[in-house]
Design a protein around this nucleic acid. Structure first.
Ligand SMILES: [Mn+2]
Ligand SMILES: [Mn+2]
Ligand SMILES: [Zn+2]
Ligand SMILES: [Zn+2]
Lengths: 168, 168
DNA sequence: GAGCTTATCACCAATCATTGTTGTTTGACA
DNA sequence: TGTCAAACAACAATGATTGGTGATAAGCTC
């Protein structure tokens, strides 16, 4: 039950393992650890955030390995690498469900918006020879934590809460 | 070269000069040069691109000064600093006309889309405590130059192209 | 216009996310 | 088990951007 809905649109670690082997890649403990960190993760973690989570399991894993594996997963189409203007790439294991994002200007938290916007295309007279592949909508604002009237908050730290703990 | 329509929605260098003075800032030859580079500039230049253009007039201007001035203009609301995922901030002197962007995945060229999309808002049940301020739509694709299989020798356009025409 | 104050300047070093290098280790397959 | 390229950890380097710092010059008084 935990993570059932969250992982609806993403491969399991076993499937990723198999996909890696099938494409001639080697499956290491480090990579499997990264798969587990990503599975059902709805926080759009940065490479550093994945690194921190992975290190609690595999203490010696290097940040380079994390970057390598994340971008390999992105090349394979198993995750998406997003640039949402927060200063670091964010990684999204949900690639099966086209969706958009709501980004907190203050702490960088990212929320999924599973909405389809109609009429989201480039007007023909504006195309001017471009071959358009896709559109991303990014909503910006302040999250509940960063919005509070009390300017008390320390650095809200886009931390990685364990997937599935927050019920919605 | 600089047309009426291009500068329709941006301040003149004289207006920027006045705005700087009025806010207690000093107006230097370097800053005025940057104002001129920006005026009517529809290329969404990076700081480096502004730097290169400015240096043809003021050879000794420093890149730091360019960054400083650009972000001061952005703070004053006279230009916009955009992160469009091209690896560098892009600066847009058009701040009066809300519009969206079409970005070339290959060369990073940015084209304005002066379209208003209806229904571009966060569904109430998805807001979840966020205070939403705005939405940006970024279309991605390939521009005419980057799309052609055969290289067209007739478009130097030395503005924002990736340097280093790799031959041999 | 001369002097004063302080913003701005050019130059240089540092930061931060990310990528390159290298020599060693390890997974996959025979 | 041996072979060997792939992957690893450690570390150096990159590229965009930002932080000092002493010198310069804008915008004031007088
Ligand atoms: Mn997402
Ligand atoms: Mn624009
Ligand atoms: Zn926030
Ligand atoms: Zn292009």
């Amino acid at each position: 039950m935990i993570g059932d809905k969250l992982s609806i649109a993403m491969r399991t670690t076993d499937e990723l393992t198999e996909a890696f082997r099938a494409s001639g890649r080697k499956v290491t403990a480090q990579r499997q650890c990264i798969f587990r960190v990503l599975q059902g993760n709805v926080n759009h973690p940065s490479a550093e955030a994945v690194y921190d989570a992975a290190r609690t399991e595999v203490e010696t894993i290097s940040l380079k390995t994390v970057y390598q594996t994340l971008y390999e997963l992105a090349e394979m189409g198993e995750i998406a690498a997003l640039d949402l203007g927060t200063g670091m790439a964010r990684f999204d294991p949900n690639v099966e469900e086209t969706h958009h994002h709501l980004v907190c200007r203050s702490c960088g938290k990212v929320r999924d918006l599973t909405v389809t916007f109609d009429g989201l295309s480039v007007p023909p007279d504006e195309v001017q020879g471009y071959e358009v592949n896709g559109a991303e909508v990014v909503f910006r604002g302040l999250c509940e934590d960063c919005r509070l009237p009390r300017p008390d908050p320390q650095h809200p730290s886009a931390a990685m809460e364990p997937a599935g703990t927050t019920r919605s």
